[in-house]
Every structure is written in C-alpha cells, then in structure tokens.
Amino acid sequence: MDLTVQLIVNTLQIGAVYVLFSLGLTLIFGVMKIVNFAHGEFFTAAALAMSVVVPWFAKALGLSAIPVFALSFCVSVLVVLALGLVVYKFGFERYLRDLIGSFIVSIGFVLLLEGLYLEIFGGAPRIIPPLIPGVANILGAAITWQRLLICFLALAITFGLYFLVARTKLGLALRAVAEDQEAAMLQGIKYRRVALYGFLIGCGLAGAAGAFMAPLAAITTFMGADFLIKAFIIIIIGGLGSIPGAILGGFIIAAIESFGSYYFDSSTATIALFVLVIVGLLVRPQGIMGHAER
C-alpha cells in the first residue's frame, strides 16, 4: 500500500513537469503547425539561467531562499522569452505551417544552441542549493517539500494556461487559428501576431518547466533532449495540438515510467512507451483527445 502511494506521488510530481513542458510543445504545434525540436533547448536555457542567477542573487541581495528563487524564476523565464523571440524572428517566422522546413530550422537551432551552451557553461553538471529543505509525509509516502511545492506551482501554471486558452480573447484567437487559420484570418485575427504569442507562451512554459527542474536535478547542457523525446510521446498519445490531451498524456507517461521502472527497469519502460505510441496510433491516430485532421 505504502509502495503504491509512493509510486503515485512520484507519478504526480514527475507528471506535473512533463505536463508543463508538453503543453508548450502542443500549443506551438496547434497554432503554428510545426513540430518544434528546439523546445528542449528553451527548457535547458531556463535551467542554466537558474544555475547562474540563483547563487548570484543569494550573494548580492542576501535574501532568504524563497524570494531568491522567485526572482530567479522570473529572470530565467524572461531570458527564455527573449531567446524565443530571437528564434522566432530568425527562423520560424518564415516557416509557419511548413512541417519539413520548420523541422530543419528547429534542428539547426538545436545544434547551434547546444553547441553554444556547451561553449559557455562547459560540460560539468551544475547544482544549485535546494529551495526548501525537509521531507513531507503523505499517507506514508515520502516527498521532499520542494518537490511538493514545485508540483503545486506547475499545476497552478497549468490551470492558468487552461484559463487563458478557455476564457480570454487571446485564447479564443489561439483556438481559432489552431482550428482553421484561413477562417480565423477572415474574421480579422492577425495570424502572424497570434502565432508569435502562441510561440512565446509555449517557450515560456518550457522555460518554467526548466526553472522548476533546476533545483531538482543536476543541470547539464543537454538535459532538455530527454524531456523532448518524452514530450513527443505525450503529445502523440494525447493528440497533437490538444491541451487536455497533453495534460492527460503527461500523467499517463509519468505513471508508466514510475511504475515501469520500479517493476522492470528503466530502459524496458522506455521501450514500452514507444510501443504504446505505435499501438496507440494504430487504434486512434488522432490521439486520445485529438481531432481528426486533414
């Protein structure tokens, strides 16, 4: 019983970050119809930024841990947004709705950014001090307080995005463009501007996920790549472009991973994921929550 609870708690806390990361990817796909292989680089950028900014703020301002992290989080996400803007302007802007062209461009950015990160930050893993110490106990399952806090924050952002897409005018525009770009333009929606906003929100989500992961894992220049492959699986399972699908998919994958790696081993769990994708696509090509698309 304790074991099951522990595995469920693990699922929830890994899943929360997966969801955040995949939401960005699925949003960008929905609005721009591109598969952004560079998404992981935004994640990495935020984590690397945290590794620089957190110690700096702690030293220069002498604040306690929580405000330092809050400030660093904001700075890291801003850095990612700026990077996203550059990537959009010098790359994706010309390849909107061009699956193969944008794929190549995004790979170009993957190589370029990964090379630059390695050049600037070096190959050694970086570690930042924990946000808050201590371990919480939920129904017999142990989880560190900081993981619990981060899990809640990630869920809060997810709800925030859900609200944004479901209730605001920008959300309506995003949905309209994802549904039918031409019809949306006929209604006076400025497609390019909406695409840019969608892309930046997606980058911001990747950045938030990266900043949240920073205190939890060793920060390396290639940590985004692993997340990227999982995020692809998540959005295929959930349905490309579907926000509820990404949320559901994120937790399904996290569950398979934490239960699978406990009962078998982690590379079997990874293969099981891929097999699941292939079988899932056969049964329901548009994903769990996706719409059939032409």
Binding site: F232, L240, V275, I278, L282
Partner: peptide, 23 residues
C-alpha cells in the same frame, strides 16, 4: 502499419520507431 497516418504523425512515429530499434 504506419502509412495509414501522414504528416506530423508519420514523422513522429518514424522517429519513435528509430529510437526503439536503437534501444
């Protein structure tokens, strides 16, 4: 099996296949 889907779905499934084979 896979050519029933196309576009981004085929791209991603062929990607997944490549990684499974490699693993």
């Amino acid at each position: 099996i896979t050519l029933r889907v196309k576009g981004p779905y085929f791209l991603l499934i062929s990607f997944a296949f490549t990684e499974v084979v490699r693993l």
